[in-house]
């Protein structure tokens, strides 16, 4: 008699060997295997936001890790939890990943208390990206509200590194108060070296504020947009999307040429936990970058 159910030990399968490649979505099996990474530098940006420069420790894992502007990683503090964070460094920077993180919850709170040398876990990259290839030969209008500038840094770096491929680059950046402005130490470099037009605006100015006051949409008065030849990338709080994208659609930019990055609670990043579903769309798989036409068709997206 042979009645024993044969044992299939997947722990012995070839896929268990070697580092996982999260870009090979359809065959990736070691879904929870994180890349151990060292926090090499922490830059305090504001009272609640810091830029973490994170370096994957294993050379072969580091070499494997490639991403495109707009993608995110799951950042893990073992024993504390895991959170989705958009990458805000250049895809060509293969030495470290920049993550701009606001202190909001358990994981981000602990991370803010950590010091350089702390070891964290990284899974990813996950999600869709801004289609920079499609924008070649065109103008790009990047619009950020608040923390929305963080995911835009990656396409900004990209544009600089491929500057001759793009025409006019404009960044509109709005925050509530001057103290909330992120990456202002880079503004001069962006303007001078990256050759782009950067306009900022705040709602509640202080005595030192010399630029525009108002809502981000007010900045449209200061620029001219060629709707035929412009792609838009919009990042910020959900209320912002509607006003901005409606305006841009009205002046004639096709909705498929506007890209926004949505934010939802995610537990897995892989289209399994369903926490980030909008209507029937997974923010982690089909997003976080969507064109505005898709977003308009999502139930209760913004």
């Amino acid at each position: 008699m042979n009645l024993k159910i044969p044992k299939h030990d997947i722990n012995l399968e070839p896929f268990m060997v070697g580092p996982p490649d999260f870009n090979r979505q359809t065959v990736l099996m070691q879904t929870e295997r994180g890349f151990k990474s060292e926090v090499v530098n922490i830059v305090k940006l504001t009272a609640i936001e810091k830029l973490f420069q994170i370096r994957i420790s294993e050379p072969c894992e580091r070499e494997n890790f490639t991403f495109l502007p707009g993608q995110f990683v799951m950042l893990e503090l073992p024993g504390c939890g895991e959170v989705p964070i958009s990458i805000s460094s250049s895809p060509s920077n293969r030495e470290f990943i920049g993550l701009c993180i606001r202190k909001v919850g358990k994981v981000t709170g602990m991370l803010h208390r950590s010091e350089p040398g702390a070891m964290v876990g990284i899974r990813g990259p996950f999600g869709t990206y801004f289609p920079m290839q499609k924008m070649v030969g065109r103008n790009i209008l990047l619009i950020a509200g608040g923390l929305g500038i963080a995911p835009l840094r990656s396409p900004i770096y990209w544009v600089n590194e491929h500057r001759s491929e793009y025409k006019d680059i404009t960044i509109l950046y709005g925050v509530k108060e001057p103290g909330q402005i992120l990456f202002d130490y880079q503004f001069e470099e962006w303007r001078k070296i990256y050759d782009l037009n950067l306009l900022t605006i705040v709602q509640n100015p202080d005595e030192n504020w010399k630029e525009r006051v108002g809502l981000i949409t007010d900045l449209f008065e200061d620029i001219s947009i060629d709707p035929e030849n412009t792609f838009a990338i919009v990042c910020g709080p959900p209320v912002m999307f509607k006003f901005i994208c409606t305006y841009l659609a009205n002046i004639g930019i096709p909705r498929q040429r506007m890209f926004i990055s949505l934010e939802r609670r995610m537990h897995c990043g892989m289209g399994k936990c369903c926490r980030c579903i909008v209507g029937s769309t997974f923010t982690c798989l089909d997003g976080p970058v969507f064109d505005y036409w898709t977003v308009m068709n999502l139930k209760e997206a913004i």
Binding site: H8, M29, T31, G271
Partner: peptide, 14 residues
């Protein structure tokens, strides 16, 4: 679908 779930796979297979 994308990102197969190995934990489920192990149980299903056995």
């Amino acid at each position: 679908s994308v990102y197969p779930n190995p934990y489920y796979f192990a149980r299903r297979r056995n």
